[in-house]
Amino acid sequence: MKFCKWIITITALLFSFNAKSQHIPDDIKNWLSSGELSKIKKAEIRIDQGEQILFAQQLRDVGDSIPEENRNYLNLSENLLINKKTSRLLLETKAYFESGYESKLEIYKNYLDHYLKVDTLNKYPKSNLINDSIDIYVSDARFFRDKSEIKGNLIAAANAIHQSNKNLQSAVLLCEKALVYIKNGEQNTELSLLDQAEPETKPLVVQEITVVTEEKKAIQSKEEIKPAITQQPVQKESATIITKATEEPKETKPSTAINKDSDEIYFTVQILADKKPVPNERIKKVYNGNLEIIENQGDGWYRYSLGKYNNYTAAKKALQNANVKGYVVAYKNKTRISVREAITYLQKLNQ
């Protein structure tokens, strides 16, 4: 068995080094330094290794029917049957896809965030919206990665990994599209970006979540959520004040829409997570500002986040202003849910 895996790994390495650099759009390739190109190449090797292990049968079946430049996790996994055998392979390749996609995202996002930050004249409105969709995909990928850590149900964990891989792949493709549009002055922005990025897939068994398969719908969901009451960050005198999820929210009045079904849906900026309670001194090293710090406990983790917000846009703005390494997450009452699920839920309540 080990010998077979060794052969697969060597094959993936040879394939990756011999393949043309078709994974990087030509329009943005000249932006990248030699170091960044090398890092992306290593990331693609990791992804190719995962594909060779997880999709060995599919790769044999499709042969050359899928051109190299169009081959990715999304179209290879379109008819993936997640049984016990596939579940074990998903667990085995988890690190391959995660490290590969996140390495590419780190480089692409640095460029994308830079161009959008200096875009004071709003020359790239479509790319700004795309960037929000990318952030949602990445946040949801982390959400499903956390779900995959729950032990006791192999297939449920594998489904969570699968969904996380799809979200990361979609985020990479959107980054490439947004950078190409910036390079070309946002020409042809009327196209739906996810038409080629995410084919229809089977619903997950982890939990019922409606996955938006078109970037246009993702943007629409974001825009339709804007009319919801925007809750400004609750200012506190000290960042050492921690509100636990088991307590009533302090100085926070949810909108009428949130209370319609006695459910509190809110977005918050996660900055820290640990298997045991984190002392205030350590929290201050991560964030020592004035936003309220909330502690949520679940799935064996203590998670710490900043503020409660009634829409995604306000939470993302708080993340940018806080100047910390974190990301937007969502909660329904005391249970963490995906950002996309929260947006979809609030959108229905506001209809």
Rank of each mutant, 00 (worst) to 15 (best):
M1H: 10
F3S: 03
I7D: 09
I8Q: 13
I8W: 09
I8Y: 12
T11Y: 14
L13H: 11
S21E: 15
Q22W: 08
D26N: 11
W31E: 11
L32V: 09
L32H: 09
S33V: 10
S34L: 11
G35I: 10
E36D: 12
S38Y: 11
S38E: 13
S38T: 13
I40F: 10
A43T: 00
E44L: 12
I47E: 09
D48N: 15
L54K: 07
A56L: 15
Q57R: 11
G63A: 13
S65R: 08
E69S: 10
L74N: 11
L76Q: 00
S77H: 06
S77D: 02
E78W: 00
L80Y: 06
L81A: 09
I82Y: 01
I82C: 04
K84D: 15
R88C: 09
Y96Q: 14
F97L: 13
S99D: 14
G100E: 11
S103A: 12
K109F: 03
L112N: 03
T120G: 03
T120Y: 08
S127E: 14
Y137E: 08
S139V: 04
D140Q: 06
R145H: 05
S148G: 07
K151N: 15
G152C: 07
N153A: 14
I155Y: 05
A158P: 01
N159V: 00
H162C: 03
S170M: 00
E186D: 07
N188K: 10
D195L: 12
E198V: 04
K202L: 05
P203R: 02
L204C: 06
E208V: 06
V211C: 03
V212I: 07
E214P: 04
E215M: 10
I229T: 13
S238T: 06
T246S: 14
E248A: 14
T256L: 15
I258V: 09
N259C: 12
D263A: 09
E264H: 06
F267C: 03
V269A: 01
P279F: 01
I283K: 11
V286W: 00
N290M: 05
E292V: 07
R303C: 07
Y304Q: 05
G307Y: 05
Y309F: 15
N310H: 08
T313V: 11
K317N: 03
A318W: 01
A318I: 04
Q320D: 12
Q320H: 04
G326K: 03
Y327H: 10
V328H: 00
V328A: 06
K332G: 06
N333S: 12
T335C: 01
S338D: 05
T344Y: 09
L349I: 01
N350A: 02
